[in-house]
């Protein structure tokens, strides 16, 4: 039976602490591979230019060196970058992902080498069909090379504080009159729900007016069911104002 896919890798430490690392999806990884492929082609064309003199002096030796360099570059690029750059290549860096040990331990040279050598199998028959299929079936989005090397590719997060000032209500927050409900709200709202609230408000200008109203109504409905405020507190509030009030109640001290 295929196990359900999850988009995070959860690791429980012996101290009982659980930390979750978001896994990179096939599309992101394919784009990163595309960037890396482009980089190796550019690097190769630069090397070819550098070898031009050698090819004039000795066409045979020049061709041999070019062939070996190209082969070494195709194999060595991923291994060297991921080893010396802690699981990242240029493509992975641009796409914000990195390779790591499946148990959260240090990435070993042998792991990096195996996952890159097994690209020969993963890329069969064309365009990583085998590796991509394995990734879709894998619970941890692992291609065959990752599976053999005990590695996963995760999103390299940059922890940043959101700009809460942008999402605060312009008018008086009617929820402030109910501090006990606000306190319970802070307890009940999960980190993911809070992130959805913040992101929906931060991305206001990216949404069409109709889509925005529909989205805000849906999110506001969810929070109303989660922790209802009395009708007098929500009287005359639009969905957007409702969400801004919620954000202010949650993040008041952080703005």
């Amino acid at each position: 039976m295929i196990q359900p896919r999850t988009n995070t890798l959860s690791i429980r430490t012996p101290e009982g602490i659980v930390f979750a690392l978001p896994l990179a999806g096939p599309a992101t990884r394919f784009l990163a591979w595309g960037v890396d492929f482009g980089v190796t082609l550019v690097a190769m064309s630069l090397i070819m230019t550098a070898f031009a003199v050698l090819r004039v002096l000795s066409p045979d030796f020049g061709a041999a060196i070019s062939m070996l360099t190209y082969f070494a570059l195709m194999i060595g690029y991923g291994i060297l970058f991921e080893w010396f750059w802690r699981g990242q290549t240029l493509g992975k860096f641009i796409m914000g992902i990195r390779v790591m040990d499946v148990q959260g331990l240090q990435l070993q040279f042998s792991q990096v080498a195996i996952r890159n050598l097994l690209r020969f199998v993963d890329s069969m028959p064309v365009l990583y069909f085998l590796g991509g299929s394995a990734m879709l079936l894998s619970r941890r989005a692992q291609r065959l090379g990752d599976f053999a090397a005990n590695t996963v590719v995760v999103r390299a997060r940059v922890a940043r504080q959101p700009d809460f000032q942008q999402i605060m209500p312009e008018k008086y927050n009617s929820f402030r009159a109910y501090p006990h409900i606000e306190a319970r709200l802070r307890q009940r709202v999960s980190a993911e729900e809070a992130a959805i609230l913040v992101q929906s408000l931060l991305r206001r200008e990216e949404l069409d007016a109709e889509a925005r109203v529909a989205l805000y109504t849906e999110i506001a409905g969810h929070f109303q069911r989660l922790m209802p405020f009395p009708p007098e507190a929500t009287l005359g509030l639009t969905s957007e104002q409702y969400l801004r009030n919620l954000a202010e109640s949650l993040f008041r001290n952080r703005a």
Partner: peptide
């Protein structure tokens, strides 16, 4: 356990 701090948690 504190919902309002996803960034610090991350």
């Amino acid at each position: 356990t504190f919902a309002a701090e996803p960034a610090i948690r991350g």
